[in-house]
Amino acid sequence: MLVCKRIFFFWLFSQIWTTPLLAQSTPSVIGHYAAITTWSDPLEALGTLSADESVTLSATVTDTIAEINFEDGEQVERGRLLIRLEDAEEQAQLRAAQALSDERRNALGRATQLQQRNLAPRADVEDSQARLRQSQADAQALEARLSNYRLHAPFSGRVGFRNVSIGTLVTPGMALVTLDKLDVMKLDFTVPDVFLGRLSAGLKLSAKTAAFPDEVFSGEISSIGTRIDPITRSVSVRADMVNPGLRLRPGMLMEVVVQQRIRNTLVLPEAAIEPSGNRHFVMLIDQQDGTPRLERREVVIGERRSGEVEVLDGISAGDLIVIHGLQLARDGQQVRLLGIADEETGIRSLLEADR
């Protein structure tokens, strides 16, 4: 009886310990196909935005505001009249100068007719011509002065706040309204001079701002500074960025990533790489005989970026690599392939489907 009990407990003990081992003998893994992807070495910097065109319109004469033709933040077209100062006196002087020009033009006509009949000397005609030119110049000078009483938009853009009212007395140099061209923005940033050889006009970049954390804005380098700062040993770089919806504003801080050394290379998720000292390995899934089996393969890696790593050698495009389940995976081991992760199918959805 005692022997039977010992046999039973031995059998029960062996079942408890061998069942998990059997379950673990065929681990479950998730694969991912190695693919050729466009890759670049990111160069990060902080930059500040400015408008493509920006101006503060101010008065050049002393007078009161007679007319305001814009609202706060309004988009205006080039040439639109924004502010008109009181110019009644100047208009009257212009009409007087134009009337004097008409009078002298008529006098020149009469003198010319008399001279043609030899009834007046040639000098009278020349004097009349000089007086006419003088009156016309006076009228043109008044027209030029009148232009100082009207502020037009020098380019299409968005005006700022209206801080003046009709009847306000303005003086020369007094700021009246700001105007910014926001459809294209300038992004200025600096990078260490050691990267100068990698920079060139036309390089693509991306930028993010805390105001729109879920959106990435794109642009390209338009020019590179001609001088190196001797204190910081950095060079200034300017990029042009399209501003969709006119949401970006001058003065915004941007996190810039310049895409340098753009190339097509083999890319894997970082989770697929097994580091071992200075060497790196991946688990290749071999399905030639219809049964998924692992093969440990050494690879040479290049640059890294968020969640991805560049593979220079060791595998080829189209190889199926383990990206989940590496903890229990061993070289030559048979595995159960739960699925293949890609842009449309994530690891979590494959694990949930296997429950």
Results as ranks from 00 to 15, higher is better:
residue 166 I to N: 06
residue 133 R to K: 09
residue 73 G to W: 04
residue 108 L to Q: 02
residue 162 R to S: 09
residue 166 I to G: 07
residue 58 S to N: 06
residue 45 A to R: 04
residue 129 Q to W: 02
residue 76 V to I: 04
residue 102 D to A: 15
residue 111 A to L: 01
residue 145 R to C: 04
residue 129 Q to F: 02
residue 61 V to M: 06
residue 143 E to T: 09
residue 167 G to V: 06
residue 166 I to A: 10
residue 119 L to A: 11
residue 45 A to T: 01
residue 47 G to I: 01
residue 56 T to V: 05
residue 59 A to H: 00
residue 83 I to H: 02
residue 71 E to N: 10
residue 174 M to S: 12
residue 51 A to F: 05
residue 114 L to F: 14
residue 134 Q to C: 04
residue 84 R to S: 05
residue 104 R to L: 07
residue 149 Y to E: 00
residue 83 I to T: 04
residue 53 E to G: 15
residue 117 R to Y: 08
residue 106 N to Q: 12
residue 86 E to R: 03
residue 86 E to H: 04
residue 106 N to S: 11
residue 121 P to R: 08
residue 149 Y to V: 00
residue 63 D to N: 10
residue 173 G to A: 04
residue 113 Q to W: 13
residue 144 A to S: 13
residue 44 E to K: 15
residue 152 H to L: 15
residue 104 R to Q: 06
residue 107 A to H: 07
residue 124 D to T: 12
residue 169 L to Y: 09
residue 90 E to L: 15
residue 58 S to Y: 07
residue 73 G to E: 08
residue 157 G to Y: 11
residue 46 L to I: 15
residue 46 L to S: 11
residue 53 E to R: 15
residue 120 A to G: 04
residue 74 E to F: 10
residue 113 Q to M: 13
residue 116 Q to H: 09
residue 122 R to I: 05
residue 70 F to N: 01
residue 97 A to W: 00
residue 158 R to E: 12
residue 125 V to Q: 01
residue 170 V to A: 03
residue 74 E to K: 11
residue 103 E to M: 09
residue 109 G to D: 08
residue 61 V to E: 07
residue 142 L to W: 07
residue 174 M to Y: 14
residue 142 L to D: 10
residue 84 R to K: 10
residue 73 G to V: 11
residue 108 L to V: 00
residue 122 R to E: 02
residue 91 Q to R: 15
residue 81 L to G: 00
residue 127 D to Y: 04
residue 117 R to Q: 11
residue 94 L to I: 13
residue 165 S to R: 13
residue 88 A to P: 06
residue 148 N to T: 11
residue 97 A to Q: 06
residue 136 Q to P: 03
residue 107 A to T: 10
residue 48 T to V: 08
residue 160 G to A: 08
residue 59 A to T: 00
residue 99 A to W: 05
residue 137 A to E: 11
residue 119 L to W: 12
residue 171 T to Y: 15
residue 173 G to T: 02
residue 158 R to D: 08
residue 103 E to A: 13
residue 168 T to V: 12
residue 70 F to K: 00
residue 45 A to L: 02
residue 171 T to H: 14
residue 153 A to N: 01
residue 86 E to P: 03
residue 131 R to Q: 07
residue 99 A to R: 08
residue 167 G to I: 07
residue 108 L to W: 01
residue 96 A to I: 07
residue 117 R to T: 05
residue 165 S to E: 14
residue 166 I to Y: 01
residue 53 E to L: 14
residue 86 E to T: 02
residue 59 A to N: 00
residue 155 F to M: 13
residue 116 Q to R: 13
residue 84 R to D: 05
residue 144 A to V: 10
residue 171 T to S: 15
residue 144 A to N: 14
residue 77 E to D: 07
residue 174 M to F: 09
residue 143 E to V: 05
residue 87 D to V: 00
residue 105 R to D: 02
residue 163 N to Q: 14
residue 111 A to W: 05
residue 137 A to K: 04
residue 106 N to A: 13
residue 80 R to A: 03
residue 153 A to K: 01
